[in-house]
């Protein structure tokens, strides 16, 4: 079967662009704290969600609604409502991370397909099977800490579908288990749906040298004419012992397009593209390229080469943990 391309949509326009460009599936979220890309100006209100899902369905595409932050104590109703509204808008599945919310969805919305978010960091077959047995989860988005052989081993021991990230931003920490951002800024992926938020970024010009700070911590320092990467905490420049540099990860983004055949062989069902914060033209271009790649694979033809390098906005590309270079 052809591998499923799962594309981000931060806006209704991006959703339409992704579907038109050939996305099999689009994922998106409501415009509040219930989703892990809670950025200003992004995401869908209820009417937009209903319309977007209608548009996708009319074009033979599916829509997954990400409700993948961890509900705040005392405010679970907001998250419960999001699940109910996703169902009534016609979503093909919800993407959840929280145990309590999974339990709620399984009991109150049994007919609504449940996917496990990468934010749940289920990283082995026992964990996947546990979520399937406990909550009827049909698909798991795998954390970006696994190599291709590890992914193959997982698929050999589970009937749950797996989805992996192939392009875009790259977390080097196990997702959903990182509070670096809230330590430095008070705003976190798990609680607020944001990481290293722009509201806490400041650039400081000190005579030809530009500092990028997050929450007051200097994360990057570049010459005035050099490109200044966004100060995401785990991709910052730090010193430890005698070393100064990108101690956790370089400012790179993920591109696993050349690994598509291996991921297919490893039993992966769906390929996920990160970037609900990206423009619709970016989304359309990435979708077209990945769709061409999986169609070529299905037809037994060679993959088109190096198609996406120019979309990385000058950042270096990495295959992340997939090639086992971490291990």
């Amino acid at each position: 079967m052809v591998m499923e391309i799962v594309c981000p949509a931060g806006t209704p326009a991006s959703l339409r662009a992704a579907v038109t460009a050939g996305a099999h599936t689009v994922y998106c979220g409501f415009a509040d704290e219930t989703n892990a890309r809670n950025f200003p100006g992004l995401n869908f209100d209820r009417a937009e969600m209903r319309e977007g899902i209608g548009f996708a369905h009319a074009h033979g595409a599916r829509v997954l609604v990400a409700i993948n932050t961890f509900p705040r104590a005392g405010d679970e109703a907001l998250w419960h409502r999001a699940v109910a509204d996703a169902e009534s808008c016609g979503a093909d599945a919800v993407i959840l991370a929280d145990l309590g919310l999974l339990d709620h969805a399984a009991r109150h919305h049994p007919g609504l397909r449940r996917h496990l978010s990468v934010q749940a960091a289920a990283a082995n077959a026992d964990a996947l099977n546990f979520y399937a047995e406990s909550f009827g989860v049909k698909r798991v988005v795998l954390p970006r800490v696994l190599s291709v052989p590890e992914i193959a081993a997982i698929n050999a021991e589970t009937a749950v579908e797996t989805e992996v990230f192939v392009f875009g931003g790259l977390c080097v920490m196990a997702e959903g288990r990182c509070s670096l951002s809230s330590f430095a800024t008070g705003r976190s992926p798990n609680m607020n749906g944001v990481c290293s938020p722009a509201s806490h970024v400041a650039y400081h010009d000190a005579g030809g040298v530009l500092d990028a700070r997050l929450g007051g911590y200097t994360i990057h320092r570049v010459g005035k004419d050099e490109p200044a990467p966004y100060p995401t905490l785990c991709k910052g420049c730090f010193s430890a012992g005698e070393k100064t540099g990108h101690l956790f990860e370089d400012p790179v983004s993920l591109n696993a397009e050349q690994l598509i055949p291996q991921l297919h062989k490893a039993g992966v069902t769906a390929l996920k593209i990160e970037g609900r914060q990206r423009s619709r033209s970016y989304v359309a271009q990435v979708v077209r390229n990945f769709r061409a790649a999986v169609d070529a694979l299905e037809a037994g033809k060679p993959l088109p080469e190096g198609m996406l390098a120019r979309l990385s906005e000058g950042q270096a590309m990495t295959t992340g943990a997939y090639r086992k270079t971490w291990r």
């Binding site: 961890f70 005392g74 679970e76 309590g100 990283a123 026992d126 964990a127 288990r177």
Partner: peptide, 28 residues
């Protein structure tokens, strides 16, 4: 890590550590 829970027979008492995401009443 919830992997450990997968191996505990239903009803076995256990503790939960700070690395498990417990953010709300439903999860408790």
């Amino acid at each position: 890590d919830l992997t450990a829970l997968a191996h505990l027979p239903e009803g076995t008492p256990f503790w939960v550590g700070p690395m498990v995401n417990v953010y709300n009443e439903g999860t408790i």
